[in-house]
Design a protein around this nucleic acid. Structure first.
Lengths: 190, 190
DNA sequence: GCCTGAACCCTAGCAGTGCTAGCGTTTAGG
DNA sequence: CCTAAACGCTAGCACTGCTAGGGTTCAGGC
């Protein structure tokens, strides 16, 4: 029993190592640089070992995405609880969201842009993702009026997501960013 | 002179053929199915011919994206000019935008999601893209108030884009779509 | 009408990708 | 101590985007 449990512990450790290595590689050089060979070399195992932990590269990316959701939730919560009032809460959460996307472009991509085998808009969605969404919802709540909080939060999230991704893809000029965010927030808080 | 011009004509024709083939293939099976080999086979030339027209696969995707922008502009213009008043104009244009993204997912991806070598937020941006943006701006104009029309249109566009992409990536439940769009529009027109 | 040179396109190949079959070693358990 | 299973490796498959090099064809000058 003890031996088996030690093995399982080591396996879990190695799995975590793979996820961390994938994340670091992606954040440093982008996902196109994360190849199974480079990843295997980095964790100092052969390629096939990756496949004994994950079904494929996409599953590894999904695991990284879940980690990212947890980090995002932490950031959003910190921003929200630090705000003295509702208006500065929603503004702070929005800014934190943008800052996260800006600091971790590859992470953000795999969380919300790329197609990964993860359940999102269902009860089986990763708790970390639900936590992040919950933070957004709490920030939006004071401005929900008679509308459905869920749908309104989704809409708000979509706005932030659109601003982030269009700007990062070069579709929107960076210099208007603050102005756009201000306009967007005004539409949701007035 | 005549011979040379004929050759140039044929070259242009073949280039158009490549773009169309790439677009059809992408729309039918997604961009991951558009390989240079399949594309070459489809236009009945060898692979290297593609590279005498385009610098690489990304350049082909960029050309398809420009075509898509022109199509989108046409759709948006039709929706806007068919509307009897400002409110129904902005709603119609939004619906047309969503419908376009829904009918042409691969096209939409290469236009606004994927990284392609195209100038976007500059004066050198493809006229087709500027036309599409202009249609959005005209729909937004009646509701711009004292705000910068450009920045407000960008913000509005980002909202639509976020709604589309998060839903298509499975991050938002499809069933709330109409509700979300309604909430979004209300924030920009009230 | 013929020859030359350039334009043109194809075959073959490179280095890399995700993924896997199958073998050999290590190691736990009787 | 022996056996059997768990484990991780080497090697390889089918594919990717892209390119070097060699023919082949054909236009232009004599």
């Amino acid at each position: 029993m003890s031996i088996q449990s030690r093995r399982e512990r080591e396996r879990a450790q190695r799995e975590k190592l793979i996820i961390t290595a994938a994340r670091e590689l992606a954040e440093a050089e982008g996902w196109e640089a994360v190849t199974t060979r480079r990843l295997a070399e980095r964790v100092e195992y052969s390629q096939p070992v990756l496949y004994s932990h994950f079904k494929g590269k996409e599953a590894i990316m999904a695991a990284v995405a879940v980690e990212g959701c947890a980090d995002l939730a932490v950031d959003l919560r910190a921003a929200r609880t630090a705000a003295p009032d509702a208006r500065r809460a929603i503004a702070g959460v929005s800014a934190a969201y943008m800052a996260f996307a800006d600091r971790h472009p590859a992470l953000y991509d795999v969380m919300f842009n790329q197609i990964v085998p993860l359940p999102f808009a269902t009860p089986e969605a990763p708790p970390a993702l639900q936590a992040a969404f919950g933070e957004l919802a709490e920030a939006v709540r004071p401005y929900s009026g008679g509308d459905s909080l869920g749908a309104l939060t989704e809409t708000f999230w979509a706005g932030l997501h659109g601003l982030v991704t269009l700007m990062r893809g070069g579709r929107l000029p960076r210099e208007h960013h603050e102005l756009r965010l201000g306009l967007f927030l005004a539409r949701f808080t007035d």
